[in-house]
């Protein structure tokens, strides 16, 4: 909005100013700074949206959390703890500073009407689960990224062959299936080989952990391989049709050299963008898959906190998911800018 225009304008000023001094900022640098500024602004607005959710709570939330027979003093103390007696902007500032320091507040669950407070902090709840989710997402990415790049590039090179058609047909179907259907299909076919419940805890060994998350990781792999493979294939086909590739073929460069020297250097930007976009997609897919396999991750925690209406935990989870999504998309943008040779050598 206005702030974005302001940021970009002041950056342009800065650039002109530097130019006068003879020390010019690289234009790519400015574009990246603009994107980063826009990303920060988006994060800020998203945090406002997520924060203001607590202000829209219907009725008196204190009684709902603490129970019907809570003493008025207890309810008043709870309201004071939430800061409901202070103006919203002040609460927002307090909340943001606390979040920036890694303090997401205290969970609503574990509070009794008597005023006894056995609630755990949100960070305590989220910490180990965030690690579990990152482990699952990491495993998926390790399998899915090389596989989809291989499938996408080979399918593009052998375009319209039987191989290309069959890979295409399979990915088109998996794209339109809901995640839980894929998960149950995998369970039916692979239940004999892998555990259907991914129950892990802190003491689970690495090898056992990998074995237990095989099915959820495979489900998510199927979903994102389909997306990534199709996008990679499309971008490679686009490049293969470009004039300089035709020129290289016409002057008799060997096929492998055309691909290595002419196609791939230009393909990195779209491919990196594709990967970042799909890792962002993984963030959403993880919620359903974690619930299917009862995997103790942050998605499951968010679902539980939403059904228990445990707002601080839900807020923290939403903020983590949204921030990951925004940052990954930002990263995709930045990689796209940095690897674009036309932007790197202006004029």
């Amino acid at each position: 909005m206005f702030a974005y225009h302001l940021i970009s304008r002041s950056l342009k000023r800065l650039c002109e100013f530097r130019e006068l001094g003879g020390d010019r900022l690289h234009p790519v640098f400015i574009t990246i700074l603009q994107r980063l500024g826009l990303g920060l602004l988006t994060l800020f607005l998203v945090s406002i949206i997520i924060f203001s959710s607590i202000a829209f709570l219907p009725g008196d939330f204190g009684e709902q959390v603490l129970g019907q027979n809570a003493l008025p003093e207890t309810v008043a103390a709870f309201r004071r703890e939430l800061g409901l007696d202070q103006p919203a902007w002040w609460r927002y500032i307090q909340w943001v500073t606390a979040v920036l320091q890694g303090d997401f507040g205290t969970s609503f669950s574990g509070r009794a009407s008597s005023g006894a407070n056995e609630a755990r902090t949100v960070v305590e709840l989220i910490g180990p689960r965030l690690w579990n989710t990152l482990f699952l997402a990491g495993m998926t990415a390790i399998i899915a990224v090389p596989l989809s790049l291989f499938l996408g590039i080979t399918a593009a090179l052998k375009r319209n062959s039987f191989y290309d058609r069959s890979v295409n047909a399979v990915t088109l179907t998996t794209i339109s299936f809901p995640e839980f259907f894929l998960a149950y299909l995998l369970i039916v076919f692979l239940a004999g080989f892998f555990p259907t419940l991914s129950t892990v805890n802190d003491n689970t060994e690495f090898g056992e952990r990998v074995y237990k998350i095989a099915l959820p990781a495979l489900t998510m792999t199927l979903v994102i391989v389909a997306h990534m493979m199709r996008m990679t294939r499309a971008s490679i086909i686009n490049l293969l049709a470009s004039p300089y590739v035709e020129m290289a073929q016409l002057k008799g460069v060997s096929r492998s050299k055309v691909i290595l020297k002419h196609v791939l250097p230009n393909a990195w930007a779209p491919i990196a963008t594709v990967i970042a976009f799909n890792l962002a997609y993984l963030v959403v897919g993880v919620v359903v898959v974690e619930v299917v396999f009862v995997y103790p991750g942050i998605g499951q925690l968010m679902v539980d906190s939403v059904s228990a209406r445990d707002i601080p935990v839900a807020q923290a989870c939403a903020l983590i998911f949204a921030a990951t999504y925004i940052i990954l998309n930002l990263l995709a943008d930045v990689i796209g800018i940095v690897t674009n040779p036309r932007l790197l050598h202006p004029r």
């Binding site: 988006t42 607005l45 998203v46 949206i49 997520i50 959710s53 829209f56 709570l57 219907p58 962002a280 963030v283 959403v284 919620v287 359903v288 968010m302 679902v303 906190s305 939403v306 209406r309 445990d310 707002i311 839900a314 807020q315 989870c317 939403a318 998911f321 949204a322 999504y325 925004i326 998309n329």
Partner: peptide, 18 residues
């Protein structure tokens, strides 16, 4: 801004409120 939050996550958050 709204589209920069994944819609499933946003829907979950709104459902926790309403």
């Amino acid at each position: 801004v709204i589209m920069s939050i994944p819609s499933l996550i946003f829907a979950l958050m709104l459902l926790s409120i309403f």
